[in-house]
Nucleic acid binder design. Sequence first.
DNA 1: CTTGTTTCCGCAAGCGTTTCCAAGGCGTGC
DNA 2: GCACGCCTTGGAAACGCTTGCGGAAACAAG
Lengths: 338, 338
Amino acid sequence: MALHEKVNMADVARRAGVSMATASRALSNHPHVASQTRARVLAAAEQLSYVISPEASRLAGGVTGRVAVVVPHIARWFFATLLEGLEWVLRDAGLDVLLYHVGDAEDRRDFFQRLPARRKVDAVVVLGMPIRDEERDRLELMGVHIVAAGGQVENYPYVAIDDLSAGRQAVDHLLFLRHRRIGMIAAVDPAEPGWPAAPGRTRAYEVALREAGLPTDPDLVVTIPWGGLAGADAMSRLLSLREPPTAVYAHSDEVALGAVRTLRRAGLRIPEDMSVIGIDDHPMAELADLTTVAQPVHEQGRLAGRMLLSLLAGEPTTGGVTVPTQLVVRGSTGPPRI
Amino acid sequence: MALHEKVNMADVARRAGVSMATASRALSNHPHVASQTRARVLAAAEQLSYVISPEASRLAGGVTGRVAVVVPHIARWFFATLLEGLEWVLRDAGLDVLLYHVGDAEDRRDFFQRLPARRKVDAVVVLGMPIRDEERDRLELMGVHIVAAGGQVENYPYVAIDDLSAGRQAVDHLLFLRHRRIGMIAAVDPAEPGWPAAPGRTRAYEVALREAGLPTDPDLVVTIPWGGLAGADAMSRLLSLREPPTAVYAHSDEVALGAVRTLRRAGLRIPEDMSVIGIDDHPMAELADLTTVAQPVHEQGRLAGRMLLSLLAGEPTTGGVTVPTQLVVRGSTGPPRI
DNA sequence: CTTGTTTCCGCAAGCGTTTCCAAGGCGTGC
DNA sequence: GCACGCCTTGGAAACGCTTGCGGAAACAAG
């Protein structure tokens, strides 16, 4: 029954009694087509349930109508949500999303080396991952627009939060509650060992403590690969200190939730015995009653999409956008026991 | 510097001293090309850093090398993980993934009505959503292969778990622990109110109770839109019964985690005062020490990908694949207090 | 009524591949 | 030594659309 597979523009033109040129213009909303003619063409197309062949259209026209989205961890809430927001905007604009998952270091090398999206897209959006200089150079070879969301790529339009400030909101909250011995569970990208996921979040801790006149005790900082279980381990390590902290600042909610599990198992009360704060406002944070610093993830995706659309429309580019974060106080933080 | 944008096959052919026909055959690994010639062509392509134009190639060749993936909830772990597995296989096979998110009922109508992927892909994969007959008919108009993962579409190759059996594993575990008053929190798709997300999971409950000779008390069944918060509400409702259950079977881990939160707030102990079991083995389930029935999500995605590849290769189709689920006992279930 | 504009439309030249068809070269069996 | 057949290569016709160019028609101005 998929007969109309075979319907092409010539058929539509014939049925509408016009030339292919006119049919093409009518279908792609060009000016200089009498509205009557246009209507006739559209009607014919409708009746034949005609669908333009993107290949042919793009071959002749030059643009692909596709956008490559590069994402390191599809299955994580943060990235998936970013993607959702982005897809929403792009789809609305009639663009198709070509998904490229670069999970580990090898995927990554492969992606930037082969550039599988080359010639297939009009733009590339990089989601939540910093890009190295040489990777950026490869990307440039594609000769298309580049946008970053949830983590900036130097010299490119981006939309992201200010990690430093988000981290400050978290740590300052703990300080405000009069905590003086604050631990940090720092996360590095498991696919890129040794590479801080968000350096700003670490600096926030250091700066906040310094400004508060507190010493920085290296024992209080535990660095782990991103993830809940690792967060749990990290908490164990903090608990094993001769003098454990009274509060813990985790780089992300998932990590914080891991810490919470360890505390529960240890029979410690939250927040009486230990305060815990994360960043992100993961949906689970609400369920777990975790205090956190919320960032508008879906919106970052949407903004990136809009930014891309203006770029494609040839509008002047706005360097980058930083979206605000906000402290969300829940039950996992409170003053320290004296 | 993106000069090679302009390099086309003619340039490669010229440089290699052959005709375009030969160049084409050499580049696409056709037989009947002298290996020397092939090498010369490949070298020329390499030197010019030539990239084939997919549009032209597909226009002439017929196939698109693209697969549409339709997914209802990108940001949920289950779907995202499915997608990750699928993408992994498809990318490995050189296929590109075109992502279509159909979030709510309107998106859905729009997608099946307009079929934006028409003519753009060689196949469609539907992730984790049941398809209505009329939607299936629309899909057929595309005239391409169709595969379902994480939920079957009638008459099409699929890969999924057996919801009935997964549900039985959960409920039977509670029965084995000697629970006699078991509640169920049933989830419906929020985008499709009234439509059970997985009917088998409900039937499992009914059948298991019947076989155990237990009465079915409608008060013990709470139906909610999918989600953690709703799960928390549902638990409240169960607790408000004159005679609450001693164990709760939730259709998914997220829902179960919501129930756990309510129990915690109520100061009830798990599992002493109430056992909770979910389905999925969501990463958070491990962190929350939730007993659950695990399903291999990533693998389902991969299997669907492989299935699709055979289909595209013209191999005979294997109706569908059901992957096994497995009870994972953790700390949220135990015998009822007498 | 003529000339200048503007609007609408058709012709045809691409866009960059793939593939059918045909032809040349060369080895082999008789 | 010849006919036959296979391997390899090239020519050229699609594939289905966009768009520059120019002509025709319609309309306003002089």
